[in-house]
Design a protein around this nucleic acid. Structure first.
Length: 716
RNA sequence: GGACGGAUAGCUCAGUGGUAGAGCGCUGCAUUCACAUUGCAGAUGCCGUGGGUUCAAAUCCCUCUCCGUCCACCA
């Protein structure tokens, strides 16, 4: 089937409104939420698979008589978009600094339009029967309102706070990121043994560290309790070899007695564990690494240097002074956290950020999460465990592209942008009309940061339906019937949608949660641009057609199961299903074009089983019934690979190879069965191969305008 | 260190208590036949290891090995 014909049918369906949901219809709802692709991202094989699965379920449910809402959207993808856009600006010699926030945003929106227009048409691929008129962009007004309501409610419920906290900072993105936005890279570095002089009693305490450049920010040394060698120093002071400050020697059982020397330098400003220990011991917090990834200027010895330069220089210096013995230095392989998006080494440092207290949300989430039917069900456990061990969610990002934090400070009374309840700050979407309660004037200035993309995406099941307004869409389609996701965003997105949905709408956001597997290359590596191992779904479509590409993808659609694929394996499978399509065309040619003059034709009004008594007819009708049952139950349990498998086997090897051959000597008599079995087969196949089934169905005796509107075959 | 998943034909993978399956690849035969983008026939597997439950195990249970993924504050 060529792409012109595909386009023709797609247009036919869309123009007839077959993709549209109808909240007013009395039919029961079946809502499917398309995971919004990133604005800047090309669609890859994983998207193609998601779309194919979503579309099969949607078409199946429509044929079963449901009022289907398949709702598409686009994600603004904060960090990713901003990175791409800034690169483009740099080519024109422009930058954020030069433009300023307002001008930058204006250009960013223009850029968004350009990008959107150039790629959005490709999102309609794979025959996705989405209700395009309802497409939602994550920054549009509707979503803004919902996001504001979310923020405001958290604020009123006292679940929102702002504070200096140790965060994972990506110097390149210039923003805090969440733990779950980080990756780890195995790196071979050096482990240095640094001697700190103990004051008063004489002697040294040695710590092992991979990060000597943070020594200027050391504020204590911690040893594990009852350290055989060092416990005599407990309570004494040591001398910081760089700053020469006196720092206390403390004990903590979180220090691993088997690592290094059993003593740990405490740097609360640049390490999460140290931060926790420092807080409990009321230690000062010093910072030597700035948000630009360089050592702060007024640091001794290494001020102004990049981190790796600083490390080299400080090691040389400490070795010269006898604090590091070169022969004691070890090679050390460990995992270094890097930013998932730009692969820059992440620096833990102190920053002012907004947080949500997640405990209450997690509690409610855990109580109700069992209502979600996870496919495969192992995800219930995985996600529940994560929710159980939830920590507060840092929702602010130092970006410009996103929902700006709806908080206003009185510039006069609150120049440091501190947060208290209703004095010199306000939570408001637009500039407050009121005056400041402290100075009775209006000098409002908005918080500089924007919200984490997932803060708004987490509300996607509600914001897309017009919440917080009590719309007919919310009433009818919430909770959604079906959601699909890649496993990699199960915490970032899925877990949060569940908690937020329960918090704001008091119900789970979706009844069925389907996780597909990850497609990898033949060596088991992820597809990535840098490896160049990606497979372009459009190339497959051009070569083999959309129907065949979809069928090839269904063979990989087993819930939660990763698959390995190459262009070659995809070609092999797609080719097979292209051949299957050819087979269908030839079956149609045989049944329709070459029908004998005296053939009776299919009569929709009477039961075919009762009229056709030949054993071959009875046999094929029986097998068809069995196939209807199988396909229906496989679709009900979202096992698309089994559904397509049994259809393929039935149509090709039972119907075409055996039954059709057997009718050649009683051709005219068998015509009604040929027509009936083929038409029914096409209807069963339509969710998976929408184009060719429409094309051929139209050529058979039929009622109704489209196979999309046909009733799902019944086995009774 | 925890949690989860995988190991089945040359390759990519289904199956998951009752005589080993598909696609691609391979071998042989068939062309005035709806279809060579085909049909028919065929070869190829101690279903990772060791044990257990059962009349019966690739399938359920336990052990081990190897691979993979996720989680965790790996200095």
């Amino acid at each position: 089937m060529d792409s012109n014909k595909e386009e023709k049918w797609y247009k036919f369906w869309e123009e007839n409104g077959f993709f549209r949901a109808n909240p007013k219809s009395p039919s029961p709802p079946y809502g499917l939420l398309v995971p919004p692709p990133n604005l800047t991202g090309d669609l890859h094989l994983g998207h193609a698979m998601q779309h194919s699965i979503l579309d099969a379920i949607a078409r199946f449910k429509r044929m079963q008589g449901f009022d289907v809402l398949l709702l598409p959207g686009v994600d603004h993808a904060g960090i990713q978009f901003e990175g791409t856009f800034d690169k483009c600006l740099a080519k024109e010699g422009l930058s954020k600094q030069k433009l300023g926030r307002d001008e930058w945003l204006k250009k960013a929106w223009q850029f968004k339009e350009e990008v959107y227009n150039s790629v959005s048409s490709t999102w309609r691929f794979m025959g996705l029967s989405a209700d395009w008129e309802r497409e939602v962009f994550t920054l549009e007004e509707k979503v803004q309102k919902a996001t504001f309501e979310e923020f405001k409610t958290f604020w009123e419920q006292d679940l929102l706070y702002k504070g200096a906290y140790i965060v994972q900072w990506c110097p390149k993105c210039g923003s805090a990121i969440e733990d779950i936005e980080m990756e780890y890279e195995e790196r071979k570095e050096k482990l240095y043994f640094v001697r700190y002089k103990v004051s008063g009693v004489g002697g040294y305490i040695t710590v092992a560290t991979a990060r000597p450049e943070t020594i200027p920010a050391d504020v204590a040394i911690a040893i594990y309790p009852n350290h055989p060698e060092f416990s005599k120093f407990y309570g004494k002071q040591a001398e910081n070899p760089i700053t020469h400050n006196e720092i206390p020697i403390i004990q903590d059982e979180r220090v691993d007695k088997n690592f290094g020397t059993g003593a740990l330098k405490i740097t609360p400003g640049h390490d999460l564990l140290d931060y926790a220990i420092g807080k409990e011991n009321n230690l000062r917090i010093l910072q030597v690494i700035g948000k630009d990834g360089r050592i702060v200027e007024d640091t001794q010895i290494i001020g102004g240097l990049k981190v790796d330069e600083a490390r080299a220089k400080i090691v040389t210096y400490l070795a010269e002074k006898g604090h590091i013995l070169v022969e004691e230095t070890k090679d050390y392989i460990h995992s270094v956290p890097v930013c998932e998006r730009c692969k820059t080494t992440v620096e833990p440092l102190i920053s002012e950020e907004w947080f949500i207290k997640m405990k209450p949300l997690a509690q409610r989430g855990l109580k109700k999460i069992k209502k979600v039917n996870f496919v495969p069900k192992t995800f219930l456990k995985i996600i529940s465990l994560w929710i159980k061990e939830i920590h507060d969610w840092s929702i602010s990002r130092s970006l410009w592209w996103g929902h700006r934090i709806p908080v206003w400070y009185c510039q006069k009374c609150n120049p440091n942008h501190l947060v208290g309840k209703d004095k010199d700050m306000m939570v408001s979407m637009d500039e407050p009309g009121k005056t400041c309660q402290s100075c009775s004037q209006k000098h409002w200035i908005q918080d500089e940061q924007v919200l984490d993309t997932w803060f708004s995406s987490g509300l996607w099941p509600l914001s897309t339906l017009g919440w917080p307004s009590d719309t007919k869409e919310v009433k009818k389609y919430y909770p959604w019937s079906f959601e699909i996701s890649a496993p990699e965003i199960k915490f970032l997105w899925i877990a949060r949608m569940i908690m937020l949905g329960l918090w704001f709408a008091d119900d789970i956001p979706f009844k069925n949660m389907f996780f597909h597997g990850m497609l990898r290359d033949l060596q088991g590596r992820k597809f990535s641009k840098s490896l160049g191992n990606g497979i372009d779904p459009n190339e497959l479509r051009n070569q083999w057609g959309t129907d065949a590409t979809r069928m090839a993808l269904y063979t990989y659609s087993i819930p939660g199961r990763d698959g390995r694929a190459s262009k070659q394996t995809m070609d092999e499978r797609a080719k097979n299903f292209r051949n299957f399509g050819t087979k269908l065309i030839n079956i149609a040619r045989f049944i329709v074009d070459l029908a004998p003059q005296d053939a009776r034709h299919l009569d929709n009004n009477s039961s075919i089983e009762n009229k056709m008594n030949h054993p071959d007819d009875q046999a094929i009708l029986g097998k068809l019934k069995k196939t209807i049952k199988q396909v229906t139950s496989n679709l009900d349990s979202f096992q698309l690979h089994l559904a397509t498998d049994s259809l393929y086997e039935f149509i090709w090897h039972q119907f075409a190879d055996k039954y059709i051959e057997s009718t050649k000597n009683r051709r005219a008599e068998a015509q009604p069965v040929l027509e009936y079995v083929f038409k029914t087969s096409l209807e069963l196949l339509h969710p998976f191969m929408p184009f060719i089934t429409e094309e051929l169905w139209q050529r058979l005796p039929h009622t109704g305008k489209s196979i999309m509107l046909a009733n799902w075959p019944s086995a009774t």
